[in-house]
Nucleic acid binder design. Structure first.
Lengths: 122, 122
DNA sequence: TGCTTATATTGCAATATTCATATATAAAGA
DNA sequence: TCTTTATATATGAATATTGCAATATAAGCA
């Protein structure tokens, strides 16, 4: 063993944190929220209509993105405007898109693949 | 509405697929597996020892990475050697690290933050 | 103060994920 | 063939995540 287990906690801790971060991106609605914030801050009300989801559902997902420091909310009067904290996030999404493109499949195939991967339609 | 709902399925489908992809990275062990494959293919047996996990647990997580086209396994005799399909994955991890660095916190703080974000230690 | 609008949070049932044990499969050797 | 070794898969219990409905909070207005 190069490193005794007692000293491996750092690498493992980093892995835990990284995975927490990716978890923030591991939900369709959260991806759509981030995409909706590409061009700057958007109000919750606006988001709710654009994404066509329940208000409480949106608020919950926003809370997750907040707790992972991905978005930040600015309160103005009764409204709250959300924006992305670090635009490097978009690069992350773009690199991800690149990985998809490398796989040379289109969205239709992606969906079919999705269903295979998850053992059939839910 | 700019786009009627019936035509929004593509963006939503892409979001679903992206989130599936990030789900693959949303687990500490899977991150560690990917990291372990940075320098080329590694046998399952070797991985199992390096990562210090149950054989079946490792095999299950490898199956997830396989089903999402992130790794591929090459069988040689009784052994199976895994490798990363597309090295763009590593760029993804590197950009993620950059996001962490932008937050200007160290691993210790990350862990503390983890516990707050998840509502306390598990 | 009471009313309305915007957002957040709580409670809870449904669903999904994880991990270990046990079992299956497949290759190699005796 | 029987045995061993390597890997994969099935089963099931524990845990985590999700999304809706209901409720709370907070700001602005009558």
């Amino acid at each position: 063993m190069l490193r005794p287990k007692k000293h491996a906690s750092d690498a493992s801790a980093l892995a835990r944190f990284k995975s927490e971060f990716f978890k923030a991106l591991a939900h369709p609605l959260r991806i759509r929220i981030i995409d909706a914030l590409r061009d700057g801050e958007v109000g919750v009300n606006d988001l709710c209509e654009r994404l066509d989801v329940e208000q409480s559902t949106l608020s919950q997902q926003l809370a997750q993105l907040r707790s992972r420091n991905i978005v930040t909310g600015r309160k103005e009067g009764q409204n709250v405007y959300y924006s992305i904290r670090d635009r490097a996030i978009f690069r992350l999404l773009d690199v991800a898109k690149e990985v998809f493109n490398n796989q040379l499949i289109n969205v239709q195939d992606m969906l079919a693949q999705l269903e295979v991967a998850s053992g059939g339609p839910r």
